[in-house]
């Protein structure tokens, strides 16, 4: 009998935790998204050929305005004036981008092994994040479509608000993920917290 190969993400020990606090409407949900591919894209945003070659493959806009993102088939985050992070379910995107960018000055690297995405939601999610981060999480300031790299409880993270006003995506280095989930679990404890995997 053969056993199917299993993929581990190193955060299994958080799953199946008994619900912390009271199960109310105010509960904070932390969803681990360990299966996404993370691609780091570098190139000159001022070069129309580079932008076109990238957007043709992505089939969506490359965000060139600082602290913004675009979400459609893939999630594309602005990291710097010449750097982006792409989160995707596609296994072939990295080769497609590499092929499309090969005649141009640019680079795309698969960094999936180095970082993990968490999706945190709930009515108190802004309160939880504000406990460990200097960004302004007021709903008037941190609006949908924005992303920012900063420190969350001293771990360096990318925080983004994709659609819903109470659902944040946090991307963190795998080596900090255990610590950060522990911190989040404690920070959200007063509202109730549930940890699941996508």
């Amino acid at each position: 009998m053969t056993e199917a190969p299993t993929q581990r993400h190193g955060l299994e020990h958080f799953l199946g935790d008994p619900l912390q606090g009271n199960a109310t409407d105010s509960i904070v949900d932390i969803q681990l998204q360990p299966r996404l591919s993370h691609l780091n894209l570098r190139g000159n945003a001022g070069n129309p050929d580079f932008v076109k070659a990238t957007e043709d493959v992505l089939d969506q806009k490359l965000p060139t305005v600082p602290n913004t993102m675009s979400a459609n088939m893939h999630r594309v985050y602005w990291l710097g004036p010449d750097e982006w992070l792409i989160l995707t379910d596609s296994q072939t995107l990295v080769e497609e981008l590499q092929q499309s960018l090969s005649p141009l000055h640019g680079a795309v690297n698969d960094v999936s092994g180095g970082q993990i995405a968490l999706r945190i939601s709930g009515t108190h999610v802004r309160d939880v994040l504000a406990k460990g981060c200097t960004l302004d999480f007021h709903p008037r300031v941190f609006t949908s479509g924005l992303c920012a790299q900063s420190g969350l409880a001293k771990a360096s993270v990318l925080i983004a608000l994709t659609g819903d006003a109470d659902t944040f995506d946090v991307v963190v280095r795998r080596s900090f993920a255990d610590y950060l989930v522990r911190w989040l679990r404690q920070a959200a404890d007063e509202y109730g917290v549930r940890i699941e995997s996508a």
């Binding site: 600082p66 602290n67 710097g80 200097t134 960004l135 790299q149 900063s150």
Partner: peptide, 10 residues
């Protein structure tokens, strides 16, 4: 100059 105003700890 790119990200705007941020806390000095960054």
């Amino acid at each position: 100059p790119w990200c705007g105003e941020r806390a000095e700890t960054e």
